[in-house]
Design a protein around this nucleic acid. Structure first.
Lengths: 143, 143
DNA sequence: ATTTTTATTGAGAATGAATCTCAAATGCAA
DNA sequence: TTGCATTTGAGATTCATTCTCAATAAAAAT
């Protein structure tokens, strides 16, 4: 993951700064969905200095080079996920407890491509989020 | 559409105010996607008095009763669409010109239900947005 | 290794959408 | 028409995100 970023940053003529390296290292260890505040508090706990502005400036770069992905916006706050070495997937979000469940379905992906082709639309990325109730919150006892 | 809102507002014990009625009437005539600013400017042009705060307060009500739907958030701005008498559909958004194209596919809907059932997740609503290039912006000349 | 050039950083100010506050206005039931 | 709770409007407030700009540091040039 760090390598992929390094390569991208160099190719773009950007600079490989301490802050960028540290932030990528931190995100590489994340296995949960995260927002800016979580990143900052984790860095702070580890005594790594990085300003809020720099975090905000770095995340779009990491998104461009594909190591992170924007998951959703809840309460006007953007949530990201580590996207490195992860195959594409979509999300179910529980409206009751906020749990985020990942899923992947090849057929849906294929259907999307078919629909795009029909409309002469060239898909770049997509986002599918299903909102509802998870098993624990009443989803199981389906009516 | 106005009827559906009226019914909902009464059932909820809310009040049928001038502002709410006027806003619904305005939205009923909208056949494009809109944001808060557009609504306000349309109302202003027609000399209908309604404050920004009231618009913000009314939209969630209209969403609850199902006559409008949140489409997407672009540049930190929420866009809605008239949802009255419209069957469910999803969207393709052109990353170049911003065009929003609606589409519907029964198979995708069915697949989603299947996936949810497998995870004991009870779907309430979903949002599928495909980002890419529309026909005019280079989508047609697909590689 | 040192200098030069130019991107990046940090701190705080600025922006802007959305929410909140509270007194005045207004639906609505009796 | 009265009483009362809800709603409105105007502006203040919140809060995530972006911007500004002087200081710093990475990479290139010497």
């Amino acid at each position: 993951m760090i390598e992929q970023c390094t390569k991208y940053i160099k190719k773009k003529g950007l600079r490989l700064t301490k802050q960028r390296i540290k932030l990528v290292q931190e995100i590489a260890q994340m296995n949960q969905h995260f927002d800016v505040d979580l990143l900052i508090s984790v860095m702070k706990k580890k005594k790594i200095n990085i300003s809020r502005a720099t975090v905000y400036r770095t995340l779009p770069i990491l998104q461009e080079c594909g190591v992170i992905r924007e998951v959703t916006q809840l309460d006007n706050k953007v949530y990201y996920e580590n996207n490195y070495n992860k195959k594409h997937h979509d999300h179910m979000i529980c409206l009751n407890c906020g749990r985020i469940i990942e899923f992947f379905d090849n057929d849906i992906e294929r259907l999307q491509d078919k629909i795009c082709a029909k409309s002469c639309f060239k898909p770049e990325k997509h986002r599918l989020i299903i909102y509802g109730l998870c098993e624990d919150c009443g989803g199981g006892k389906n009516d």
